[in-house]
């Protein structure tokens, strides 16, 4: 990571510099403005939402949009706490599950020299092209044959075997876990599992943090598809969309719940970001 040198290789013309910073600043504004607008709107009282023309600033910030949320959602049969529980539950289970399952498989792919391991990993690498959306209908068929429709399993099981997460951990292991270290442990009589837990996993920390981030962010945003019918298994982002569909009077509150839902993934990113780049530098696909 420290290979980046500070020297300027080529100087830019003044015009080049102006262009460079203009593009960067414009791009930053475009990226952040919708989120900024969302946060501002969530603090606006109703009459300010209707001001003509609309304002960038809040004159009289209020928490009323946030306070209205439980009541807005309570006309449904299920309390908001149930949706919150569902989202937290599937996020936590899947994230920890995919770290364990994925890293065990990655360990085997990276270090075991088993017959067929290379071929299997090649297939996994190719399958990174497909995700739950493209595999949607055939997956639905399999869920239905296994009797999993309308259970938590449809959220959890496919994501536990995330090809990208396993790939990232395997690539990291190839680059960072030294074969001679494993040989030394073997000579000392350590078994496969204790080697995995005591030697490999501590080195794998950056990759684990990265998978934690990606898994968390994907699961946190999960909206039930055609495989969930019961209200009691639906997630928080799903309720958010129902508030957002409520028109101009609900604008403030739908932005309020959007802001609340933004906080956890941002927190996880800030917590893990120093590890992410280290992991992603090993993400290359060799042909």
């Amino acid at each position: 990571m420290a290979k980046n040198s500070q020297y300027r290789r080529y100087t830019r013309s003044t015009a080049g510099n102006i262009g460079y910073f203009t593009i960067l600043i414009l791009a930053s504004i475009v990226m952040v403005f919708p989120l900024f607008y969302c946060i501002i709107t969530s603090f606006k009282p109703l009459d300010e939402l209707l001001i003509f023309p609309p304002k960038f600033i809040v004159r009289r910030p209020t928490l009323s949009n946030y306070r209205a949320l439980p009541a807005l959602l309570s006309n449904l049969n299920i309390p908001i706490s149930r949706y919150l529980f569902n989202t937290v539950f599937i996020t936590v289970v899947t994230t920890f599950g995919s770290i364990i399952i994925g890293s065990l498989a990655a360990f085997s792919f990276s270090k075991s020299k088993l017959k067929g391991a290379k071929v299997c990993f090649g297939i996994i690498q190719t399958m990174m092209l497909y995700n739950a959306a493209t595999l949607g209908v055939p997956q639905y068929l399999i869920f239905s044959k296994l009797g999993l429709i309308d259970t938590y399993w449809v959220y959890i099981l496919p994501s536990l075997a995330s090809t990208v997460h396993c790939f990232l951990m395997k690539q990291f292991m190839d680059a960072s876990v030294n074969q001679s270290l494993l040989e030394a442990a073997r000579i000392d009589g350590a078994g496969v599992l204790s080697t995995y837990w005591k030697i490999v996993m501590p080195i794998m920390r950056p990759a684990v943090m990265t998978v934690l981030l990606f898994s968390f962010q994907a699961m946190w945003a999960t909206v039930p598809g055609g495989t969930i019918f019961s209200e009691q298994y639906k997630t928080l982002p799903y309720v958010m969309s129902s508030v957002a569909a409520g028109g101009i009077a609900r604008t403030g509150s739908s932005m309020a719940i959007t802001v609340i839902l933004m906080i956890p993934p941002i927190a996880v990113f800030l917590f893990t970001q120093s590890n992410v780049l280290e992991t992603m530098s090993n993400s290359g696909i060799k042909e």
Binding site: P34, L35, Q217, V223, A244, P265, I266, F269, L270
Partner: peptide
């Protein structure tokens, strides 16, 4: 962070709806 944040907060597309 600035460039990554829109994809990080997956549900932010409702902002565009509004």
């Amino acid at each position: 962070f600035i460039f990554y944040v829109p994809s990080l907060v997956g549900n932010a597309l409702y902002i565009w709806q509004i």
